[in-house]
Design a binder for these strands. Structure first.
Length: 426
RNA sequence: GGUGGGAUUCCCGAGCGGCCAAAGGGGGCAGACUGUAAAUCUGCUGCGAUAGCUUCGAUGGUUCGAAUCCAUCUCCCACCA
């Protein structure tokens, strides 16, 4: 039983480019199709930038198709020049292998691993001899043509090493191998992958005499036209040790008004009609749409329990946008009781007792120690700028000291700006 | 291999031998305004309580004094072969 996966992707805005729309739609509606998406293990965690392909994978799987998740253990050693203005530092084989394992476990949160295939292209590139490779595969590529690829053209200005130049060929070969071994018929990828994908489609046709397809997803930009998923601290990661769940939730919660609808389509499974209604909400009610987005996205990445915690922590801090559940939604967020009362999931920091003796501890030092500020200097500037709060009262002077008297029942609340808070305990 | 150009604080980029912790922009942070949004305006943006300390690809040198001059090295880029 197949759902119309093509229509689903189309409606939700996933489709940017495709090789043969009509034939692809027909294929997806006539049989369970094996498809693949590749991820290069360039870090030990995926980040939000990877999420769009992952969500597409999930939707396709739910519609009855079979995903292959390819981890590029070999290609990461080469480095994809697509969409990058300069070469990345070359990574050691050990690091790449470690990253590959980490990615696999993260991917398994989003897709049903029992019904998917995990492969690592290091497996087939490992034994390939250079001369054989040149003869069998290299002979089928035209340098003239490769030079016209957007990803290559862009780098002709700044420089492109021969190593990176090969990337396209390697990725193309991946497709042909997956087609031969697993009957893989479609490759999906980000917008910048178009060149690599079509060269794979071409190569597979020539090597295997098989008709295969490619499709790319749009590049996500926020409404300012900046790359999506980057914040002050860099990328937003799926690994909770890199990006705490609360911050992950907040990333979505703080999205731009204009983007909520789009993001709900991509990153939640809510029905499209509901999304339309939510994103059409006016003024303050739009915040409910953001809460739903943040909650749903966090459920996917970190599980329901964690998402609830993040939701309650955020709402108890900033307020519930729809405490009475007036806005209809199918999201399970509506079942969370705001009345849970006393929910306080603030990160804590324990001050060593000796610091509080005598005159107490200098606030600047405490701010820096607790991790709210990166240095004493930053803490001082924060106070001078009026952005530091002790038990919700603005700290007026840099010279302030914190003593045991500032603690209520052994704890006090220290804020750096409106969004960074820590509970300090003694 | 030859010749020329370059490497500056998170990024881009300006820097006269002293007035440079280093112009300007971007980004970031904070404040005001708000809806935990956007836009706008304001302040801050190497470390340090101060004295001071460490930074301008690396290492040495010249000088009272070097991001600025010299030597060597490393890496990039361009043109030629």
């Amino acid at each position: 039983m197949l759902r119309d996966a093509y229509k689903d992707l189309k409606e939700r805005g996933f489709i940017y480019q495709e090789t043969d729309a009509e034939a692809l739609q027909k294929l997806l509606n006539s049989e369970p199709v094996t498809f693949y998406i590749g991820f290069d293990p360039t870090a030990d965690s995926l980040h939000i930038g990877h999420l769009l392909p992952i969500m597409a994978m999930r939707r396709l799987q739910e519609a009855g198709h079979k995903p292959i998740a390819l981890v590029g253990g070999a290609t990461a050693l080469v480095g994809d020049p697509s969409g990058k203005s300069e070469a990345r530092p070359i990574m050691s084989k050990e690091i790449v292998a470690g990253n590959a394992a980490a990615l696999k476990s993260q991917l398994s949160r989003f897709i049903d691993i029992d019904n998917s295939i995990f492969v690592n292209n290091a497996d087939w590139f490992h034994d390939l001899l250079y001369i054989d490779f040149l003869r069998d595969i290299g002979s089928r590529f035209s340098v003239n043509k490769m030079l016209t690829a957007e990803s290559v053209k862009m780098r002709l200005e700044t420089g492109l090493s021969f190593l990176e130049f090969n990337y396209m060929i390697l990725q193309a070969y991946d497709f042909s191998v997956l087609n031969r071994e697993y009957g893989c018929k479609v490759q999906f990828g980000g917008q910048d992958q178009w060149g690599n994908i079509i060269s794979g489609v071409d190569l597979t046709r020539r090597m295997n005499q098989a008709e295969v397809f490619g499709m790319t997803f749009p590049l996500l930009l926020n409404s300012q036209g900046q790359k999506f998923g980057k914040t002050a601290g860099g990328a937003v990661w799926l690994d909770p040790t890199r990006t705490p769940v609360f911050d992950y939730y907040q990333f979505w919660r703080n999205c731009d008004d204009a983007d909520v609808g789009k993001l709900l389509c991509f990153f939640t499974s809510l029905p499209i009609e509901e999304i339309k209604a939510l994103s059409a909400l006016e003024a303050p009610a739009i915040n409910r749409a953001k809460e739903i987005l943040a909650y749903e996205a966090t459920v996917l990445a970190h599980g329901k329990a964690e998402a609830e915690k993040a939701y309650l922590a955020a709402c108890s801090k900033f307020g519930f946008s729809d405490p009475d559940n007036k806005i209809p939604t199918s999201s399970s967020v509506k079942d969370i009781k705001p009345a849970a009362g006393g929910v306080d999931d603030l990160p804590t920091f324990e001050v060593p007792a000796e610091e509080l003796e005598g005159d107490g501890i200098w606030v600047v030092k405490l701010l820096a120690m607790s991790g709210l500020c990166n240095s004493n200097g930053e803490a001082r500037r924060l106070i001078q700028g009026g952005g530091a709060y002790l038990n919700d009262e603005r700290i007026g002077a840099v010279e302030t000291n914190v003593t045991a008297a500032d603690f209520n029942d052994g704890s006090l609340i220290l804020k750096a700006g409106k969004k960074k808070v820590k509970r300090i305990i003694m």
